[in-house]
């Protein structure tokens, strides 16, 4: 049984929960897998630290919580500080490279950065940074296929914003492909058509 534990951390307002929802929906509704999403729920989730956990599996998920994520996505420095020590051995971390300094990261962890907020700002909508990150996640992890994730983005965002969000998703996805192909972040930005 192949099970992947994912944690996404950031600040309230960065779309962390929606990001988790899109990955979960992509995996379970469109991608033929099972996915359970749980989230930090409480008054503290509004405006400060906030996180979502997703367990993705080929079989039905029994235990729904994440103790040691195989995939960690961090959108804020605080989330990095809090969650990086929890990562499983050989885990992969995706981070917002202009908001997170991954200082002191265990060399065992494969880390990939993306300036998701800057890419979103170039699309004139800072709030789609989470969708850029979801695109990046799709390319780097290959956990859920591209088509399933596109469908999930489309069916998860507010009506009328689908085109913008899909563009944000494609930018993040392309950036991820370029990084995987060995380009450095600046080259990847240029390749993705971003202003220098």
């Amino acid at each position: 049984m192949s099970t992947t534990e994912i944690k996404i951390g950031g600040l309230g307002g960065q779309g962390v929960i929606l990001g988790g929802m899109i990955i979960g929906r992509g995996a379970s509704i469109h991608g033929g897998k099972h996915a359970t999403l749980t989230q930090a729920f409480g008054p503290e989730a509004r405006g400060s630290a906030c996180s979502a956990q997703i367990v993705v599996s080929d079989e039905s998920v029994e235990y729904p919580y994440v103790a040691h994520p195989n995939l960690l996505v961090v959108m804020s420095q605080e989330a990095y500080t809090r969650f990086a020590p929890e990562m499983a051995e050989g885990a992969t971390m995706l981070y917002e490279s202009e908001l997170v300094d991954p200082a002191g990261l265990n060399p065992d962890i494969k880390a990939y950065g993306i300036p998701a907020t800057r890419i979103a700002e170039n699309l004139k909508r800072r709030m789609v940074a989470n969708i850029v990150m979801v695109g990046f996640f799709t390319a780097i992890t290959e956990l859920v296929n591209l088509d399933a994730m596109r469908k999930s983005v489309e069916s998860s965002v507010p009506k009328g914003t689908e085109a913008l969000n899909l563009t944000a998703f494609e930018r993040g996805y392309q950036f991820g492909l370029d990084i995987k192909a060995g380009k450095n972040p600046e080259e990847a930005m240029t390749a993705a058509g971003e202003p220098a």
Binding site: M21, G24, H34, A35, T36, T38, F41, P64
Partner: peptide
């Protein structure tokens, strides 16, 4: 219970 109520699945 709160866990099942706030857990999201297919």
């Amino acid at each position: 219970d709160e866990s099942v109520g706030h857990m999201t699945e297919k």
